[in-house]
Design a protein around this nucleic acid. Structure first.
Length: 748
DNA sequence: GAAGTGTTAAATCGC
DNA sequence: TTAACACTTC
């Protein structure tokens, strides 16, 4: 092969060491912007080019499939004409790969379906129903999170109650057990299974483990700081006959603790893999000195970290800007306006980063008003849309009839006369005979167990399924289209003739287009479905977009000349739940990650008030403590001019340093009444008058009785548009807001 | 059983 | 604010 070793070109001494280290465990502690992904890619090139191993003996685990694809492209450039490639994928994809081969050893069929979080919730909801659990006392989402966390800790339904101290421990444990049972029964695996089951497989079947040990003689793991306990265990099992493991990570960038990532995996690498060589990459090639210093000063407030000093010999750069806006809308307007300026000045790439997805809307609207094209990452993604999931469920059910979850989703969608009563009858056969839902339908039809009308509907559906199944042999995209036609899904959408239905049809077409790309693969449908399930939001990142909107988490590993970090407010960032849960250090690392995405200019914004759920009065908040942790000489604070001055103008972004607007959350001349803001005394009088007029029947303090919730007490009566909103507290049921509910509400 | 209407809950981050 | 669900009516 070529001996020019150009994969060593342009590297500094430390990087060169990391790339050309031979066999044995290596830990590369690589700070932000130090070129760690570049180092790992070049190391792979080195291993191949020096014939230290065959390309096919290398397993490189990346954080997203997109990162894996990019790594493959880089390898193609570094080693042109390479005949074989390493296995480059995520932990989850690797798990699927193993399980598609060996699932039968664990009592699954190899055609198993991957359940995402939505599917999990749906299944858990059903479990609650079956067990008679009340989701008012135990929210399904909370239960799901607890179960997932428990599994990653290695707890079982039996040991769980001993581990957590909660009144609901028993209920959670029961739901946990039933959830696992039903999941496996429908031959489904959730995301946790994709890691836990390979671990179980390797532990129960040493021969299989050995096979993998021999097959992958070099293992490289990027973003090691974000691996969790089962993933660590998987790595451990994969390295039992050799210790050729190269972990690359940065403990300051560990931001996935909430899904079990354990920062200790990286902190104790050296003791886990004796003889490990540690190489630090401390030179930053990305950001200006100012940005790097500010970010470093921030993260230095964390106690739980290794000592690592990042430095750069890049330019000084301009100060970190801090914009203070009056409300979220103004914050977004200002950011959009600034983005417009940067674009006009020829800036190539900008990003707006925020803590939570719901913040994106304001920025979308503001950018649209200025006709600035942008790319949104995450949110309600294509693969989570209802019609796309319906279509995928059709495929999943047709290829595996035992998949009752998918069947339940499509059986009466489009409506085909199989309603609640009929489904209850099916369900009772499921329980009596202990068979799958599909079998229950067939058995019931054969033995004439259904009333004639239900039987007719079920038979027609079953026949339709039989015909649809024949299409499975066709090329994937044709199969998909014919199946959806056969099951009446497309016809149903066409009949609706609404704009919404048209959009859904377009999405179906788009899905068919995606399917076309999978044509000709060995098991194209399987790969297509796996792709849909394992796709990550970060995969949607479009490198060509000039303006990108995304969460801080999705920004991991990326860089932009100009970065806006929005919503730097106490309660939002750091998030209130993080403050409660004592995971403040992780929030600070997230802030560090966000700041170090910026190459030339970093702008952090903060809004003094913010609304939640639309109509609630804007809550005023304090600036994020992270802003206070930035060295004052590196930042410059800008207060946005009085409300309204930015709108519709092409003037440069307003800059005015009037302190009064900082701590006065209301526009001038405004007064407030019951948390609502009114601009004049007259409007308050009017509001009070309206209230008096419109609440003839009820006033606060009244004892009332509601047809559904029983006895209660009126807390507040207010006008909502033309209606009345009555807030009543019901003992044991909490507070209810009732709109137009007089008929159900009686004065006592 | 389906279509239409009313009510409520919701939103941290994500494979 | 919106989307899911629950309930009502035909």
């Amino acid at each position: 092969m070529n001996s020019s070793e150009h994969y060593l070109e342009g590297l500094n001494e430390q990087q060169r060491l990391a790339v050309s280290h031979g066999e044995g465990p290596v830990l590369i502690l690589a700070g932000a912007g130090s070129g760690k992904t570049r180092a790992i890619t070049r190391r792979i090139a080195y291993l191949i080019d020096r014939r230290i191993c065959d390309p096919r003996e290398i397993l490189a685990v990346t954080f997203t499939n997109k990162a894996a694809n990019e790594m493959k492209e880089r390898l193609e450039q570094l080693l042109p004409g390479l005949r074989h490639y390493p296995l480059l994928c995520t932990f989850h994809s690797f798990g699927v790969r193993v399980l598609r081969e060996y699932a039968d050893k664990l009592g699954y069929r190899r055609s198993f379906t991957i359940c995402d979080t939505d599917d999990q919730k749906r299944l858990l909801k059903k479990v609650f129903k079956d067990l008679g659990l009340d989701d008012e006392q135990l929210p399904v989402e909370k239960c799901r999170a607890v179960i997932s966390r428990a599994r990653n800790q290695g707890w079982t339904p039996d040991t769980l109650p001993k581990q957590i101290f909660s009144r609901q421990a028993e209920d959670i444990s029961t739901a946990f057990r039933e959830y696992l049972r039903q999941l496996k029964e429908s031959n489904c695996m959730d995301f946790d299974d994709l890691i836990l089951l390979p671990v179980e497989l390797f532990e129960k079947h040493p021969r299989i483990r050995e096979r993998y040990n021999q097959a992958y003689r070099h293992i490289l793991i990027d973003e090691y700081q974000d691996t969790n306990a089962p993933q660590y265990k998987l790595v451990w099992l994969l390295t039992r006959i050799h210790q050729n493991v190269c972990a690359v990570g940065d403990e300051d960038q560990s931001i996935y603790g909430f899904r079990g990532a354990d920062i200790n995996n990286i902190l104790r690498f050296e003791s886990d893999f004796p003889g490990a060589v540690t190489i630090k990459l401390e030179q930053n090639y990305r950001s200006t000195q100012t940005i790097l210093k500010a970010a470093t000063a921030l993260v230095a407030n964390n106690l739980d970290r290794k000592d690592k000093t990042m430095w750069t010999d890049g330019p000084q750069g301009s100060p970190v800007m801090v914009y203070v806006a009056y409300d979220a809308r103004q914050e977004a307007e200002t950011v959009a306006h600034k983005i417009g300026q940067y674009l006009r000045n020829g800036e190539s790439k900008l990003a707006v980063l925020y803590r939570t997805n719901f913040q994106s809307r304001q920025f979308e609207e503001a950018l649209r008003r200025l006709d600035i094209p942008y790319k949104l990452v995450g949110g309600v993604s294509f693969y989570h849309r209802r019609e796309v999931r319906d279509a995928l469920s059709c495929l999943q059910f047709l290829r595996d009839n035992a998949n009752s979850t998918s069947l339940a989703r499509i059986i009466n969608n489009p409506p085909r006369g199989i309603g609640k009563t009929t489904l209850e009858q099916v369900q009772s056969i499921v329980e009596q005979r202990n068979v799958s839902m599909w079998d229950a339908i067939r058995i019931g039809l054969e033995e004439d167990l259904y009333p004639s009308r239900a039987a007719r509907a079920l038979r027609s559906f079953a026949e339709s399924v039989g015909r649809a199944r024949k299409h499975l042999e066709l090329p994937l995209h044709i199969a998909l289209e014919r199946i959806l036609k056969e099951l009446g899904y497309i016809q149903h959408l066409e009949d609706e003739k609404t704009e919404d239905a048209e959009n859904r049809l377009l999405n179906i077409n788009e899905l068919i287009n995606v399917a076309r790309d999978y044509e000709g693969r060995e098991d194209s449908m399987q790969e297509f479905l796996d792709h849909a399930s394992l796709r990550s939001e970060a995969d949607d990142i479009d490198d060509n977009a000039r303006v990108t909107l995304m969460t801080l988490h999705n920004a991991k590993g990326l860089e932009f000349p100009v970065v806006f970090m929005a919503g730097c407010e106490e309660g939002l960032f750091p998030h209130s739940r993080s403050i409660d849960e004592n995971t403040l250090e992780e929030e600070r690392r997230l802030c560090y990650v966000g700041m170090t995405r910026a190459q030339k200019q970093l702008i952090m914004t903060y809004s003094k008030t913010r609304r939640f759920y639309g109509s609630d009065p804007g809550r005023s908040n304090l600036p994020s403590r992270f802003l206070a942790e930035l060295p004052g000489d590196l930042t410059e604070t800008v207060l946005i001019d009085s409300y309204g001055s930015v709108y519709g103008s092409n003037r440069p972004s307003p800059v005015s340093l009037g302190a009064d607007s900082l701590f006065n959350p209301k526009p001038r001349n405004a007064s407030s009444y019951k948390g609502k803001t009114y601009n004049t005394v007259e409007s308050i009088t009017q509001a009070l008058e309206n209230k008096r007029k419109s609440s003839p029947g009820f006033k606060s303090g009244d004892e009332v009785s509601h047809s559904k919730f029983g006895r209660g007490q009126v807390l507040m009566v207010e006008k909502a548009g033309d209606d009345l909103k009555i807030t009543v507290s019901f003992p044991g049921k909490g507070m209810k807001k009732l709109l137009q509910s007089y008929a159900k509400l009686k004065k006592l």
